[in-house]
Design a protein around this nucleic acid. Structure first.
Lengths: 188, 188
DNA sequence: GTTAGCATGTAAGGAGTTACATGATTTT
DNA sequence: AAAATCATGTAACTCCTTACATGCTAAC
């Protein structure tokens, strides 16, 4: 999750860690903040994998002489771009998980149109299954639940129901706006 | 989270691990399933802390002779009941977290009425803060967001907004139904 | 008599958080 | 010159999942 978010943001523009974290918080709407304790090790790991390059802060000719711990600006490498493209075209089951789906949607602008549709449809299937599971659980045990637990289930069910409808709208508009095109950078 | 759920369920009736896991899944409406890999170690820990007692499967007089790995039935001890009461009357900030709040609400039937109100109000405050944070983030960066990210934020905002309204209804009805009572077992 | 479901457990690992530690730069 | 905020990083830990390993019991 952090990996795709970091690579996706760095694909928009190079950045240092601190800024990355702020953009990250904005990206998913305060849903996830990510601490530095996970961000910096991730940057290290991505750097070691060759997907991002780490620009050492060179002392400006006019700047202070030595040993400042300054900003380390990260940018996506060519391998990183390839790797990100792979991540963004993955339509395996993990793409439909709660945590991952948000990150995937946040980078839909960088995602092929056909993949967008598959991700949306897969997510909808997943949420529908959850909804159906909740519904039948509620039908089975509904009567003997106390008021509070019942309310919890009712609100939960309503939320997943709304998500299904939301996804359906997104799918509709995706089909309308880009019915037969594929937004790839390079056409075969 | 698992701790409070396990103790809360065992307070309703003694159970073995396997059954506990099924009840757990039903309790939060398939929101959380919990694997055995976390359940059994938790049972071990709670047992070592003296909060639950572990009934070894004694061979029935008429039953099979030896060494069956049979069901281990767990039940809440007196200390466990006290500890659960402490957990259920805790109104510290953790009680308002996403994961914890669900578990707290699920055991409201075992919770004092005044504490219920505090938990609901604390949760509402928390969600309102989140909503306001999302709103101002959206106001600040709203224009330069692409369609998909904007939709993600809009749907997220609508969801927290709905949760606030839901909590408000629960609070209203809590105030109406038990305005001056405290559902304690023992009155001072 | 074999599949399905009941039942208990462990080892390894993932994906983060918290708390801490340090230092640079900007604002008051 | 103090305080706030920017900026980077590590160590320990939390809490859970996955994959595995084992064995019992009921149903077909």
């Amino acid at each position: 999750m952090l990996e795709i978010a970091v690579l996706g943001l760095l694909n928009e523009s190079p950045m240092h860690g601190y800024e990355l974290r702020k953009r990250l918080a904005g990206l998913l709407g305060t849903l996830r903040a990510f601490s530095y304790g996970s961000l910096y090790p991730t940057l290290r790991r991505l750097s070691e994998a060759g997907w991002i390059s780490e620009e050492e802060p060179l002392d400006l000719p006019s700047g202070p002489p030595r040993s400042r711990r300054g900003k380390r600006v990260y940018r996506l490498t060519a391998e990183g771009k390839e790797h990100l493209a792979d991540l963004l075209s993955d339509v395996g089951p993990e793409a439909f998980d709660d945590e991952n789906f948000g990150a995937r949607l946040a980078f839909f602008a960088q995602t092929r149109s056909d993949v967008r549709l598959q991700v949306l449809e897969g997510r909808r299937r997943r949420v529908e299954e959850k909804r159906d599971g909740m519904r039948s659980a509620l039908a089975r045990t509904g009567e003997r639940l106390d008021r509070y637990t019942a309310e919890l289930h009712r609100h939960g069910l309503e939320s997943v129901d709304r998500e299904v409808r939301w996804l359906t709208e997104l799918i509709e508009s995706e089909r309308t706006n880009a019915p037969h095109k594929t937004n790839t950078k390079e056409e075969p």
